[in-house]
């Protein structure tokens, strides 16, 4: 029950979030190398909302890949490097529900019995998923400047079930006058990425992503948005492989393009 208690503790600590003037941005390793434009869009959205954004050079990865593979020590050392990289007491905004979930819900447990556990608990309390931060903390108001478009949403499992992010990204999309949001039938179902799952259990993963894409296609929306690049890499990569024209994009990039395009 330890994890649960810790989670309850730092959730409570993080609850009253006053509007800060500065935030850290944790880009995540996947965004860093494969989707940097999504990360940049996330930072730009925060800046447009009037917040100073700091991107610490020393950041790398949340450590989730190693933890989920059972290599807790390696995960902890990489996690410790992130504790060091974000020293100030300001919110840390993450453009990925999964990495945010790792840092918020699993760091306290990962550091059990480690002298850095108090630091990990405090760090966890400062973690925010990007769309939730934009809505809950900054209360952003968006103005749509784009052409009419229909989109559908893929919530990542960890953003929903570890970060409790369910309505916020949709609330942002609903602010956009020319965007029609249609739900896909299997919205809450996992896309089959699961990190190493995709390569360890290729057959099951393929069945999952192909069902996911089918339910996206059924909506008729040409664009799938998500807040997690792991899912996007999976669904988008599958769409491309099977010659499906669905565009898979990170929500931050989409929002920036529609509201602040130059």
């Amino acid at each position: 029950m330890t994890t649960t208690n810790l989670a309850a503790m730092h959730t409570a600590a993080a609850a009253p979030a006053a509007r800060p003037d500065t935030v850290y941005f944790f880009g995540t390793c996947l965004v860093d190398m494969l989707y940097p434009e999504a990360g940049l869009a996330g930072m730009d959205l925060l800046r447009h909302a009037g917040v100073r954004v700091v991107f610490p050079e020393g950041q790398s990865c949340c450590g989730q890949p190693a933890r989920n593979s059972g290599y807790f020590e390696e995960a902890r050392e990489v996690a410790r490097a992130q504790l060091d990289a974000f020293p100030g007491d300001v919110p840390i905004v993450v453009p990925s529900g999964s990495c945010a979930g790792m840092m918020k819900t699993h760091y306290p447990h990962l550091f059990e019995g480690d002298p850095d556990q108090p630091r990990a608990i405090a760090f966890a309390a400062r973690i925010h998923e990007l769309t939730a931060f934009l809505v809950n903390v900054l209360g952003v108001k968006l103005e749509d400047k784009g052409e009419p478009v229909t989109v559908t949403w893929h919530p990542s499992c960890h953003s929903m079930r570890e970060m409790g992010v369910v309505d916020q990204p949709k609330a942002l999309l609903r602010q956009l006058a020319n965007v029609t949001l249609v739900e896909n039938k299997r919205e809450r179902e996992c896309c089959g990425f699961g990190g190493t799952f995709a390569v360890r259990q290729t057959a099951v993963s393929t069945a999952m992503v192909s069902d996911k894409l089918a339910s996206v296609r059924e909506t008729g929306a040409g664009t799938l948005l998500s807040g997690d690049c792991g899912c996007l890499m999976n669904i988008g990569g599958h769409a491309e492989k099977v010659g499906d024209g669905t565009r898979c994009r990170h929500i931050a990039e989409f929002l920036m393009e529609r509201c602040h395009a130059q």
Binding site: G39, L40, M43, G237, K241
Partner: peptide, 23 residues
């Protein structure tokens, strides 16, 4: 079942610095 992930010529670290975000 998927295409290869594509590495981008500049990382977010690069882009953040280029855009002037402080470290």
């Amino acid at each position: 079942a998927r295409t290869k992930p594509r590495f981008k010529p500049r990382t977010l670290h690069d882009l953040a610095r280029e855009r002037g975000y402080p470290n």
